[in-house]
Design a protein around this nucleic acid. Sequence first.
DNA 1: TTAAGGATCTCCT
DNA 2: GGAGATCCTTAAA
Length: 188
Amino acid sequence: MLTVAPECLGKVLVVQRPDGVAAGRIVEVEAYRGPEDRAAHSFGGRHTARNHSLWCAGGVAYVFLVYGLHWHLNLVTGLEGEPQAVLIRGVEPLLGLELMRQRRGPLRDEHALTSGPGKLARAFGVARDLDGAAFTSETLFLLDGPRLPAKRSARIGVDDAGAWARRPWRYFVAGSPWVSRARTSAAG
DNA sequence: TTAAGGATCTCCT
DNA sequence: GGAGATCCTTAAA
């Protein structure tokens, strides 16, 4: 999974919805590795209705809601019974710009369209009905792209996870304006 | 059935 | 740089 995460950078995420198609190049991801990873939803080996998709064989989507407002899109990468996933945090829009703007509403900063996990999920129309969907379906799939140079840093939003929070399991493309802004400036 | 908390975003200063 | 929004999931009685 730690090898899969950097390989995701540069790939193109495509989501087809009834109201249109959206596509973008992945420029930022985070790796989560349960059940040891305290920051992961699967920490402790908990297999619940919510994170069921995490335990499926790799290649499906794990979609969940945080703070009652924001959806997050993960790519499950483990074997069946091994909860491992890559969280997609930032993409560079390629197709469906108009559609994304519609779904996101008026923005002060053009780059805010997809520069964050909650933002891109909304821009791409990702919601609960995509949870468990295969990444090879017509609705949701990945295209190969040029391998981009990955930089690493600590993950974001997992401060209370102790040493696990400091693991450099966030991979991003340095210099891309579509990378979400880390609260703690990226090391490296 | 109830209570508590969360892998964030946005606006305002 | 700081605080509020908002609803789903989980655990306990």
